Computed example of a mutant assay.
Amino acid sequence: MVYTQIWEDPVVDMTALAIKPSHNLVCIASGGCNMMSYLTASPASLLAVDLSPAHVALGRLKLAAAQQMPDHERFYEFFGHADRPANLRRYDQHIAPHLDSTSRAYWETRSLGHRRIEVFTKGVHRYGLLGRFIGAAHLVARLGGVDFRPLLECRTLAEQQRFFDERLAPLFDSWPVQFLARRRASLFGLGIPPAQYDKLAADGNGDVIPVLRERLRRLVCRFPLSENYFAWQAFHRGYAPTEPRALPPYLQRENFEALRDAAQRARLVNRSLTDALAEEPEASKHGYSLLDAQDWMNDEQLGALWRQITRTAARGATVIFRTGGSTDILPGRVRADILGRWTYDCEASETGFRADRSAIYGGFHVYRRR
C-alpha cells in the first residue's frame, strides 16, 4: 500500500473533464479517492486500473461500502474518520459479504493475530508508504522545534503565510532536512521515483530544496485551511474534524446518494492502463485521468499508452495528467502523428494548476481529442 489518500485534487480533475451522464471514464485508481469522487458526477461508466493489488483491494472496498453501507454517517465513519472500533463490525456485516474473493482475502489476511482490515480502527490515513512518510516528517519537524497545531488554528491566509515564513521555511536551511531531501530514497515515500525526482530538481536548476520549499508554501499558503483537505492530511494526518468543506467530494454528505448509484457502474482491475485499454472498443471513452503515472514511463511505454488512448478516444475526449516538473513531457517523446490528433488546452491546464489544492506537482496538463 502506497496511498490511502491520493494527492491529486479531484475537483480540478472534474472541472477539466466536464463529466456528463453519457461519459465513459478511465482512470488510474491509486488510493481510490479520485475514482470515487468522479462517480459523484454520475458518469455512464468508469474503468479504473492499478498495478498495485493493495490499491485495487482498497478501491474495491470503497466501491462495495458505497453500495452497502446503510447511510452516509456510517460510510464517513469508515473512510473519513477511519479510526472507529465499530468499523470492524461494519466491515463484517455490510462490506465483506459483497467483496470479491481476492479483495476479501487481502483485508482478512492476518499479521501478529490482527486482520489487515483493522487499520480502519486505528486511523488508516497513518498507514501505507505515504502515511508513514508523513509521520516521519512530523518527527523531523518536532526535532526542529515545529508544532503544527498553531497552523491548524489559523483562520486567515495571512496567518497561514506567517506560520510558513516563521516556522516552516527555516527548516529547509537545516542540515538534516537538506541531507534527507537531496537523497532520492528519502522522497520515495511520497511516491516520487528517481526519474520524477530529477524533474523536480530540474525546476530548481539541479537543486530540489527550493522546489520543495515552494511547493510546501503553496500547500500552506495558497488556500484557506477550511477548504484544503490536503493540508489537513499533511499536518493533522486526517481530515478536519469540523470543516465539512475540507473533504474530497466522495465523502461529502450531499454526494452520497449519487455515489451509491454510480458505484455499480465502476469496474476496477489489477492491470496496466495500456493493457486494459487494448481490450476496449474504439472511440468509446470520453475522459482519461492518468495522475502522474507518465513520469514513471520510458518513451516506448508512453508511445504504447497513447496509441491505445487515441484508438479508444471518442471525438472531443479529454486526457488529464500531472507532472513532477513544470513542463509537458509528451512533445518529442510521443510520435507526432499520434500527438497531432490532440490539442493541448493551455487555458484549462493553467487554470487547473492554479486551483489544485494538493500543490505538490509542477504541472497540470489537459489534452482534447481533435
Rank of each mutant, 00 (worst) to 15 (best):
Y3E: 14
Q5G: 08
Q5I: 12
A16S: 09
K20V: 07
K20A: 13
C33K: 14
H55F: 15
V56W: 02
V56H: 04
L63N: 02
A64F: 05
A64Y: 04
A64V: 07
H72R: 05
Y76L: 02
A86P: 11
R104V: 07
E108W: 11
R115Q: 02
L130I: 12
L130A: 10
A141S: 09
R142Q: 05
V146P: 05
D147T: 07
T156W: 03
F163Q: 02
F164T: 05
Q196S: 10
Y197Q: 06
D203W: 09
I209P: 07
L212K: 06
R215G: 12
L219F: 12
R222M: 04
F223L: 12
A231D: 10
A234Q: 13
F235G: 12
T242F: 14
A246V: 13
P248W: 10
L251N: 05
Q252F: 00
Q252V: 00
R260Y: 04
A262K: 00
R265Q: 01
R267E: 15
A276M: 12
E280K: 11
D295P: 08
Q301M: 06
G303V: 11
R311M: 06
A314E: 01
G324F: 11
S326M: 15
D328W: 05
P331A: 14
D337I: 12
W342Y: 08
T343A: 01
Y344S: 01
D345G: 02
C346T: 13
D356C: 01
D356E: 01
R357L: 04
A359V: 08
F364C: 00
H365P: 14
Y367V: 13
